[in-house]
């Protein structure tokens, strides 16, 4: 509650300041764009359907002007022997897990930004570069980003990556739900290329219905859990699986939205001017110690 009232206080004071400086209040945004539209889109990833062809990895790189290479080179299945995380060179990756003692086939799991309904990155970003868009995408403005990497620490899925290897102008990188493509009415690149439609793109509410129906009709095929329906307050990307999500390296997160955690830490630290006050206390302390040392030194000389 204190966080909310503080935000409201800030909003009001900024608006008041803006009016005072002659700006029209209508052109000013009080906080980052954080829309939770009832029509927001999502993707249902059916890990029981995915064949691990990694075409999505290629399509993603191709769509985001990253070094993609030849599609044929993605047929190499040796790379699936090690677990990978999305990074600044690959915004989505596919990992492979054993299906169980009694099957030759593996389970393939695509990993990318989940596009949370209550994104921790949006709330953590101190410059308001991150935003949750009306269509469900969680995107960021590279021009506003100052590279503080708070989003990386805040994300419950540890998705945002940073171009550490660039000395000048490094960028935060993550899946943007192909915002530029969907804006023009195209499907996200990965959804578009998937040969088996393991990725179903559609309105989030509709996807939940589809997921529930699949579980009900094939109780032997799926566990009764749609990952992302409720986790961290819901995510735009949701998953179906044949075995416990913990065994597929999904984090065990509660149903509470992640910003609750990041906001309370931030607001706890920054509330009541704790950082500046503690800084001054520290500096004052150092001054006092050095001054006292000097005094003691002069006393000894005499």
């Amino acid at each position: 509650m204190s966080g909310k009232s503080r935000r409201e206080f800030l909003k009001k004071s900024i608006t008041a300041g803006a009016i005072a400086t002659g700006l029209s209040s209508s052109t000013l945004k009080a906080g980052p764009l954080n829309i939770l539209s009832p029509d927001r889109m999502g993707v249902l990833v059916d890990t029981t359907v995915c064949v691990g062809c990694r075409n999505c990895e290629w399509a993603c790189k191709d769509a985001h002007n990253l070094h993609a290479g030849n599609l044929d080179s993605y047929e190499d299945r040796k790379i699936l022997e090690t677990k990978r995380r999305p990074d600044h060179t690959a915004l989505t990756v596919v990992n492979e897990y054993p299906r169980g003692k009694y099957s030759n086939l593996p389970i393939d799991v695509k990993v990318q930004c989940m596009h949370c309904d209550h994104p921790a990155c949006v709330s953590a970003c101190i410059v308001g570069a991150f935003s949750k868009q009306e269509n469900g995408s969680v995107i960021w403005d590279t021009d506003m980003c100052i590279g503080c990497r708070y989003c990386m620490a805040a994300c419950p899925f540890q998705i945002p990556a940073f171009e550490y290897d660039k000395a000048l102008d490094p960028l935060i990188m993550k899946c943007d739900f192909c915002f530029d493509r969907t804006k023009e009415g195209n499907l996200p690149a990965c959804v578009n290329i998937c040969p088996v439609e393991a990725l179903t793109y559609g309105p989030r509410t509709e996807l939940i219905k589809v997921a529930r129906k699949r579980i009900k009709r094939n109780p032997d095929r799926y566990i009764d859990h749609v990952f992302g329906e409720l986790e961290v307050g819901g995510t735009s990307w949701m998953y179906l699986a044949s075995k416990d999500f913990k065994e597929l390296d999904f984090p065990d997160l509660g149903k509470n939205p992640a910003p609750g955690v990041s906001e309370s830490i931030q607001h706890g630290i920054f509330a009541y001017f704790v950082p500046p006050v503690s800084l001054y206390v520290l500096l004052g302390g150092i001054m006092w110690i050095t001054k006292r040392r000097k005094e003691l030194g002069t006393e000894e000389k005499i």
Partner: peptide, 9 residues
């Protein structure tokens, strides 16, 4: 979207 598209099927 309840059943896969032709390519998926």
């Amino acid at each position: 979207i309840s059943i896969p598209d032709l390519k998926g099927a």
